[in-house]
Design a protein around this nucleic acid. Structure first.
Lengths: 242, 242
DNA sequence: GACGAATGCGAGTGGTGACTCGCGTTTGCC
DNA sequence: GGCAAACGCGAGTCACCACTCGCATTCGTC
C-alpha cells in the first residue's frame, strides 16, 4: 500500500552510545573502545559523502563501507541497518545545526543595524552548510527515512519561530500571519542563495554571498524602515501609506 | 569507481514514436494504436506521481504500473526500461517548460512596468510548476539519470540567458558578470518562492504568491533606474533616481 | 468473421544490495 | 602473557525489484 521509506519497527541497538543512565531498560549498552568510536566517526563521515552524492536510497551500504575504507561487515558492527546510519547522521547534523542556529540568531543581533545583522546571522549559517554538505541533501531528499523527516520538520518550525520572534521585535504591530509569512520567505530566500553559493567557487562564491545579503537587505529593509502599515507590505507591490 | 546512475548504453527502442522518417535506420518503428498512445500517457502521468513522491531510485516500476492501473508487463510493452520512462517524462516536461518559459519571457513583457511584468512572467511559470509537480523533483533529485541531468542543465542555462537578455534591456550598462549574477539570483528567488507556494494551500498560497512578487519587486526595483517607472513605483522602498 | 498485430497480463527469473556468519586479530585488563 | 570482549573481515544468504515470457484478449482491416 505504501512504498515510501518508513522506519521498520523499533530501535534495535543504540549505535553510538551516550552513557547508559543507570535507571534505563537493560538495552545491552554495548561497550565500545576508542577505536570503535573512531570507526563510527569515519563511517558517518563516509555516509555523509555518499548520501550527499547520490541521495539516501541510491546509496549502498557497501559504498559507504568502501568510502570509509572498511568491510561491509565492520559497518554492521556499529549500525544495525542502513536507516540507522542515516538517522544517526541526521541527528548529529541536526544537533550541530541547532548550535549554529542558536549562535546565529542571538538576541544581541536583533539590535544591530540591518546590514551588520545580516553579516552576523548569515555568515555562520553559510559556513555551517558549507562544512556539512550532507545537511541540505538529507533535508530535502524526497526519499529519506520518515524519522528524520519528522525531526527535520520540528527543527524547521523551531527556526521559523525564532525568526518570527526576532522579527516581531522589529515589527511590533504586524499581524502574526504576516510575520510568519515573512519569516518563511526569509528562510526560503536564504536557502535559495545558499544553493547558488554552494554551486559556485572562489570569487564567484564571494560575490553570491554578497548578492544574497543584498537581496535579503532589499527584502527586509522596507519592513523595518518606518512602522509600515500592515496593509501595505503584502497586499500589492506599491500601495503604501504616504 | 563511480556508482552514480548513468545511462547504460544506447537507445534500445523508441518509446513514444514520432513518424519514422523514411531515410532512417531500420530501428523497428513499432506501430502503435490509439489505445497504446493513451496507455503511454497514463504511464507517464503515473510515473510523474510516483517520482515526485519518492524520487527516481526509490520509485519501483511495479509502483508506477500499479499507479497507472496496469500490469508490470504492460509497462514494458511501451518502455524498454525504467530509465526510459524517466527520460521520456523528462523530455516532455522540459518541452512543456520551454513553451511556458517562452510564453512567460516574451519581449513585450520587458516593456511593462515592473509590477505588471512580474505578474505577466511569474503567473504562467507558477501555474506550470503547479500542473507538473514532477518537474521540480526530477530537476533537483540527486539521483536522476545523467541524460536528464544534462538536458536540464542546457535548459537551465537557456533560461538564464533569456533572463539576462531581458535584464540587459533594463540595465544597458551593467557589467555582464553582474547581470548574470542578478539573473541567477532572480531565478533562485523564484524557485524558493515556488517551494513555499507549493507547500501551502488556499488563501495561504495566494498570500505566498503575492509575497514572492513583493520580494522580487524589492530585489529588482532598485536596479532599474528610471526606465518604465510608473506613478512612484520605486519611491517608497529605497533610494531612487531623482 | 477471420487473420495478424498490438495490447494486456502476472507468474517467473536474474542480479543487485542489505544484511549475517564464522572465524581470525587487536585491545583492555589482571 | 593470558583471557574475554570488541573489532575486523568478506564470502555467503535472502528479499526485493527490474525486467521477460508465454499466452489470452482486443483492434484494425479485408
Amino acid at each position: 500500500m505504501d512504498n515510501a521509506p518508513e522506519e521498520p519497527a523499533a530501535t534495535p541497538d543504540r549505535p553510538a552510545g551516550e552513557d547508559p543512565a543507570p535507571g534505563e531498560q537493560p538495552t545491552k549498552p554495548r561497550r565500545r573502545q576508542a577505536r570503535g568510536e573512531r570507526r563510527i566517526e569515519q563511517l558517518l563521515e563516509a555516509a555523509g559523502v555518499v548520501f550527499s552524492h547520490t541521495g539516501y536510497t541510491a546509496a549502498s551500504t557497501n559504498a559507504i563501507a568502501r568510502e570509509a575504507g572498511v568491510s561491509p561487515g565492520t559497518l554492521y558492527q556499529f549500525f544495525p541497518n542502513k536507516e540507522a546510519i542515516a538517522v544517526e547522521l541526521g541527528d548529529r547534523l541536526l544537533h550541530r545545526w541547532r548550535d549554529s542556529q542558536g549562535q546565529a540568531l542571538r538576541d544581541e543581533h536583533a539590535t544591530l543595524p540591518l546590514p551588520e545583522m545580516l553579516d552576523a546571522v548569515l555568515d555562520p549559517l553559510i559556513s555551517f552548510n558549507f562544512e556539512n554538505p550532507a545537511f541540505g541533501v538529507l533535508m530535502h531528499g524526497p526519499d529519506t527515512p520518515g524519522r528524520i523527516t519528522r525531526e527535520i520538520e520540528s527543527v524547521h518550525t523551531a527556526v521559523l519561530h525564532r525568526i518570527e520572534e526576532l522579527m516581531s521585535g522589529y515589527l511590533p504591530d504586524a499581524p502574526e500571519a504576516e510575520v510568519a509569512r515573512t519569516a518563511n520567505m526569509t528562510l526560503a530566500l536564504f536557502k535559495a542563495g545558499l544553493d547558488l553559493i554552494q554551486t559556485h567557487e572562489g570569487a564567484e562564491r564571494e560575490a553570491y554571498i554578497q548578492e544574497l545579503k543584498t537581496a535579503m537587505f532589499r527584502y527586509l529593509d522596507p519592513l523595518i524602515g518606518d512602522r509600515a502599515a500592515p496593509a501595505g507590505s503584502s497586499r500589492d507591490h506599491l500601495e503604501s501609506t504616504p
